[in-house]
């Protein structure tokens, strides 16, 4: 169970450039339970996007966006809608966003922040990992999580130990930031790497104080025990 919360709508709208059309994809798994996926997310995001002059080419709820094979097959059925879109907005945890980014060759933007695994890990069958930072950066990094692909969790490009696309840690391990760079180049968004990202709030991640535990998951798992 991955716990996520929707990003402020202004943040999501800020990702899209003027007039860009979007395909809206929501997860019907953990994210639906948290109210950040499923039809509920589409009901919140659709009017916001359309109201900001971003026509939707289609919307879709899939049971588990972390399942790459499923995502690929199901999106293939909506190929026309997806291809007509400039960007894909994904309402799910960070794993779902990364899975979709792996499947599609266009910008994939997160609509939610992932807070915690909630105790259950490893339910997804693909290699994408989410750092649960609570402040999802996948928009800036081409849908590849810098916290999990870079051992140092750097936010502004590779360290000096990156060579021929490999990490300094061990031979054969890909440099996460080279992957991010290549991906951003492929989707024409290298400009995103010229932006400064201030240090993140570490408290948005795993150890969430009670005051921040707003997602329904906490209500189910914790509050009812009181």
């Amino acid at each position: 169970m991955l716990v996520s919360e929707l990003k402020p709508l202004e943040e999501v709208l800020g990702y899209l450039r003027a007039g860009e059309r979007a395909f809206l994809l929501a997860c019907g798994g953990c994210a639906e339970v948290c109210g950040t996926g499923g039809e509920e997310a589409i009901l919140k995001l659709r009017p916001a996007l359309e109201g900001a002059d971003h026509p939707l080419t289609g919307t879709l709820v899939l049971p588990f966006l972390c399942n790459k094979a499923l995502v690929g097959l199901r999106l293939a059925r909506r190929r026309d809608q997806v291809e007509a879109a400039d960007v894909v907005v994904v309402a799910s945890c960070g794993v779902g966003v990364q899975t979709v980014a792996q499947v599609l060759d266009k910008p994939v933007y997160p609509a939610a922040n992932t807070i915690t695994m909630g105790g259950l890990q490893g339910v997804w069958p693909s290699e994408e990992r989410c750092g649960r930072c609570g402040d999802c950066l996948l928009y800036y990094t081409g849908g590849i999580c810098p916290h999990t692909v870079c051992p140092k969790g750097l936010l502004h490009g590779p360290c000096g130990g990156s060579q021929n696309g490999e990490c300094e840690l061990e031979p054969g391990r890909p440099c996460g930031w080279q992957r991010i760079y290549d991906r951003l180049e492929a989707i024409g968004r290298l400009d995103l790497l010229e932006q400064y990202r201030p240090p993140q709030d570490s408290q948005k991640g795993l150890d969430v104080p009670l005051s921040r535990r707003k997602a329904p998951f906490w209500a189910l798992e914790y509050l009812e025990e009181d």
């Binding site: 590779p158 000096g160 930031w177 080279q178 290298l190 790497l193 010229e194």
Partner: peptide, 19 residues
């Protein structure tokens, strides 16, 4: 700050240098 002029590919490092 430091920069590693010999790494390949250089482009990501130049972007970081600019930042």
């Amino acid at each position: 700050a430091v920069v590693n002029p010999g790494v390949e590919p250089l482009a990501p490092h130049l972007l970081k240098m600019r930042l």
